[in-house]
Design a protein around this nucleic acid. Sequence first.
DNA 1: GGTAAGCTTCGGTTAGCATCGAACTATGAA
DNA 2: TTCATAGTTCGATGCTAACCGAAGCTTACC
Lengths: 226, 226
Amino acid sequence: MKEGPDIAFLGSLIGEPARANMLTALLSGKALTASELAAEAGVTVQTASSHLSKMETGGLLRQRKQGRHRYFALADDDVGSVLEAMMGLAAKKGHLRTRTGPKDPALRYARVCYNHLAGDLGVRMMDSLLARDFLMPENEGLGLTDDGRAYFEGFSIDFEPLEKLRRPLCKSCLDWSNRRSHLAGSLGTALLTRFYDLNWAKRVENSRIVAFSTRGEKAFLETFPI
Amino acid sequence: MKEGPDIAFLGSLIGEPARANMLTALLSGKALTASELAAEAGVTVQTASSHLSKMETGGLLRQRKQGRHRYFALADDDVGSVLEAMMGLAAKKGHLRTRTGPKDPALRYARVCYNHLAGDLGVRMMDSLLARDFLMPENEGLGLTDDGRAYFEGFSIDFEPLEKLRRPLCKSCLDWSNRRSHLAGSLGTALLTRFYDLNWAKRVENSRIVAFSTRGEKAFLETFPI
DNA sequence: GGTAAGCTTCGGTTAGCATCGAACTATGAA
DNA sequence: TTCATAGTTCGATGCTAACCGAAGCTTACC
């Protein structure tokens, strides 16, 4: 009767508070256990387990067994992108969750989006890389220029393992706080890891906030001028 | 307790079959009456009315009264983008609706996405415009170059009314069938209208398919070479 | 082997919400 | 005024799915 992909199924999967909580938690990029996700969503483990299996068969989640733990993560970058896009729309329409605490400014400034840097600093990095022609928009998304490759190699990014992955190297992801794009893809992930390694920033426990040190922030702003 | 925008609310709004059907119908870009949408969703008008008011207060829909008719349409381009993004994910994950009929190839070739051209031809147009530097990727999305402006004016696009709108002129929208981008925004809308005016193509009744005439297709391909 | 932790499965309960009939409002036509 | 069409509101019904207790399964650690 009807043509096209089934939006309703996806929507209902995302549109249940407990599941939405879990998905938002997983947007932090960390793989979490069923118990952790249950706590995050405020339901018992049995209920969480049921939700998790639904989301897994629905293609939103990926499961990795490790000993007696089962770690859940978003299935791929696309799931994260759609979630962030929905966040953007929700924010624009004023559908905010209960109370957007004092963390909010920090969250808008620098946060983890699945596995890469988002927020003001994420957008700034993207802008800077585009302005200096290190990244070039391509049909499908984003391409790395030769200059860009050299630049990142100078920044101690090792491309060899990245290129073996099935994930795209560069991808743009729409920011819900800014309504502008930031860099996703395996390069985005690698860069964020590099920031951690350089001690420019570290993750805030139980939050998506990325806390830059004053020194780290300075270095970041110098590395990615506008 | 929790920070950030509320995904669950949006998801539940979209994740109900009747509502999803209506939204998909509205992706055609046409404003439809409550009765038409009820038929589209396969529910009675009372039920439809209830759904419509929910979606309107939820910010997904916009209502325009006209005599004793009430026309509903998607609230803005962003809603359309999120819907297409979800379609992309659903298609990728294999969640297709009941049976994807013989219309499908035509739908992938050229269809309406809210108010602009999508599908293979839509993507080709985007590629062509980018390759010839008529469009340039900018921070937020897409920018029109001076060359581009001249080019479109030669194509009888009148920019004056377009620039008075609050909508962005150019915007990229991810294609669910192709997983590549095509041109949205008010320019995208204007171009599609122009194709209709030139009799290159016309809408197929009760469908999102855009049917190009052989002459129109030829002209289109020449106008937007790769 | 025994025990504990992590997670899933099963069954029964409950709550929310979509659904529709019927009554009501509003606009237009005769 | 009267009738017809478009749409909303109200109330009752019924279905679905989330929820949790209890039991079962698997893996680890002593």
